[in-house]
């Protein structure tokens, strides 16, 4: 009996010590920011110029990212941060994602721009705030827009609508991974990162012109996807 008590007592101490090493309260905050070649996004005038030499401004920017997760550098586990997130430049409440507590380890951040084909189904997000503003008509493939980027070009009263999405059911979403290591250990609390979008990079290196209607233009959708994969997004660590 005395031996049994000793074993139980030792086991309790062991479990207690192990627990202390793993528990932390570290969260990750992902802040969304947007620029045009490093300059603030302008709604006035036509102060931005794309690779095709077209001048423009930005009046609307809404987009979806999905499957936002941390992948451990040992590749042995993943931590899903959020399934789908809607960013609206006009709504500050959409500009940050707060994770749950992340266990210690070294991670890489990954997300998908848009929704993949299995997720992007008409009416599958009816209760989400983006349902009405981002829906993509069934007769053009159904589901939801990935992005609505709109503004003036050429003159104030001519508008471009760079709308990306699943044209005729094609999956133009893409993965974004970042080499920035995210190290979480007991000595730190929360970590903040900025997910930066350089809007001008949507329009090059594959030349994409500003046009009023591209939802059914598959080559343009493909070019936007390739430009997106080549470096529209960037991840920056932010100091406390």
């Amino acid at each position: 009996m005395k031996n049994l008590l000793s074993v139980v007592f030792a086991a309790l101490i062991l479990i207690s010590c192990g627990s202390d090493q793993e528990i932390n309260d570290t969260k990750i905050f992902l802040n969304f920011s947007h620029n045009v070649d490093g300059n603030p996004v302008s709604m006035d005038g036509l102060s931005h110029t794309n690779l095709a030499g077209e001048n423009y401004n930005v009046l609307t920017l809404k987009y979806l990212i999905s499957d936002i997760k941390l992948i451990s550098n040992e590749k042995d586990h993943e931590k899903i941060i959020k399934d789908v997130h809607f960013v609206d430049l006009s709504d500050p409440s959409t500009m940050v994602i707060e994770s749950d507590i992340i266990e210690n380890g070294s991670y890489t951040l990954q997300f998908r721009f848009g929704l993949d084909a299995t997720t992007n189904v008409t009416n599958s997000f009816v209760n989400e705030i983006f349902h009405t503003s981002m829906s993509w008509p069934e007769m053009m493939g159904g589901g939801y827009h990935y992005m609505k980027l709109e503004g003036s070009y050429t003159n104030d009263s001519t508008f471009y609508n760079t709308h990306t999405g699943p044209t005729m059911g094609m999956d133009h979403s893409f993965l974004c991974s970042f080499d920035v290591p995210i190290n979480i250990n007991n000595s730190i609390n929360n970590l903040e990162y900025a997910i930066e979008m350089n809007i001008n990079n949507w329009y090059g290196p594959e030349i994409v012109n500003l046009e009023p209607a591209i939802m059914m233009n598959i080559p343009t959708q493909m070019n936007l996807m390739m430009n997106g994969m080549m470096g529209v997004f960037n991840l920056q660590g932010l100091l406390d």
Binding site: N123, H131, T132, S135, P137, E138, N161, M215, M216
Partner: peptide
């Protein structure tokens, strides 16, 4: 429901708004 009429961007979904 196409960009020809482009009604759906404001009057989309089954709610038509």
């Amino acid at each position: 429901n196409s960009e020809k009429g482009d009604c759906f961007h404001c009057h989309g979904t089954e709610m038509f708004m």
